[in-house]
Design a binder for these strands. Structure first.
Lengths: 240, 240
DNA sequence: CGCGCGTTTGAACATCTTCAAGGCTCGTGG
DNA sequence: CCACGAGCCTTGAAGATGTTCAAACGCGCG
């Protein structure tokens, strides 16, 4: 089990640096931790709430403490893309030009920590390690984007779905007696928009994987991997 | 015309910070500039040379001074993706975990500036502005990746090609008496791998745009936009 | 219990991939 | 300088895959 989150500003501040190296954990003095905590807000959000509005000035960075978020982008022609999902421990908004390149909306009740960008930069200017941490988070944001590209470039819908499920298993999968189980809090349409296909094609891909015995779908928002070997084989491009 | 490049370490170091704000241009003292220049190497490369090998430890950052580079990634199934192209002024290798997530190979004779990561970090630790510059470059690397996603997600091959050409026109297009002209130094296959389609489909898309009078192709590696309005219309998803 | 929305399924049509062959360009050598 | 050849690009045709429109299903909420 993941550690239980106690949503107060102090622990929230700690969470921003907790993933860093051990050496860095001792970087901030207690009063500096308070500085950071002062610029951190806990936000508790219902499903469908918006943390980030595309095009708005990028003034804050978010850290998901609990729940899930989808990053959406409206194309020039009005089509919606989903550029990523965030789960416990993920960040959004580090990489930013002057305006957010996507919106962020919760797909289930979510608790997040909001850091003012200006405050973080100020703190970064006083602590190199902290500044480096932001660079590291930014790099991760990029790597996530690259992985998304890898998932959606080439292959059939089934292939892409298999790759998506494997990446989800790695991020949020929990082990079961018989294999991994994945919670998929987002709607099918969101998966479709993430894969770059119609909802129908996505649904059919789910069905085919299920009928092939590769996965089972005990619940609309829950997928169990029944045959990981075969799922990995499907993730290797077969055609299209 | 772009400014002529004088490939010495000093100007190379200057190029790393030249894109930053005016305030930042004065950040480094002459001796610090020499520090930076000392850790910079000019590399002159033939077509097909490799600057970065996927999977190798990310020890350096590259700045393209002249020429063009393609970033390739070999998928788990052996398929090649192209995750981006670099032209004059572009950077690669800022965002990096411990290993490069892609290879970089030149697609024409290229001059680049190589900075040792360690030296940059050392310099960053002494100059906040410089460290910030790296964060900014990293953010740009991410935004480029997002734009790639936007290009390849949804729409027909023709749509994606139109979006690609428009993005290229913005980056490397030169204005002509009758419209913009784009140099495309990469092979058709590379465009195909960037768009996530077969070379044949890509070639057909070029042909259709040409026959529709939207573009003309005076040379294999040169595209002229004849009807920008129509090209933009094609870039808006029509189907598929 | 019934209604509404999200999902699944079905069928017709459009698009893309694949395999195969033809043509153009450029670099090389006579 | 011209001719040849190899590699790249384009074109063609068949089959596979995905989209679209339309309708049925089922789960959750009032």
């Amino acid at each position: 089990m993941k550690p239980v989150v106690t949503p107060d500003s102090e622990s929230c501040a700690a969470s921003l640096i907790q993933c860093s190296t051990d050496a860095m954990a001792a970087v901030l003095s207690p009063e500096e931790m308070q500085d950071l905590a002062a610029s951190a807000d806990i936000v508790t959000l219902d499903r469908g709430a918006r943390l980030i509005e595309e095009g708005a000035p990028g003034k804050a960075l978010y850290h998901v403490l609990k729940g899930s978020v989808q990053l959406t982008h409206i194309n020039a022609d009005g089509q919606r893309l989903i550029t990523g999902f965030l789960f416990q421990g993920d960040f959004a908004g580090v990489c930013v030009s002057d305006r957010y390149p996507f919106s962020a909306e919760t797909i289930e009740p979510t608790i997040a920590c909001r850091f003012e960008r200006e405050a973080l930069l100020e703190l970064g200017s006083r602590h190199l390690e902290f500044e480096r941490r932001m660079l590291s988070i930014a790099s991760n944001e990029f790597l996530q984007c690259l992985q998304h590209l890898e998932i959606v470039m080439g292959g059939s819908v089934e292939t892409k779905l298999a790759r998506f499920l494997l990446s989800m298993a790695e991020r949020v999968g929990v082990s079961d007696r018989a294999g991994r189980v994945i919670e998929l809090p987002m709607r099918r349409e969101a998966v479709a928009d993430y894969l770059g296909h119609s909802p129908e094609a996505t649904s059919r891909a789910f069905t085919r994987l299920r009928e092939a015995g590769v996965i089972s779908i005990p619940h609309r928002s829950c997928v169990a991997i029944e045959n990981e070997r075969e799922l990995e084989a499907t993730a290797l491009r077969a055609a299209a």
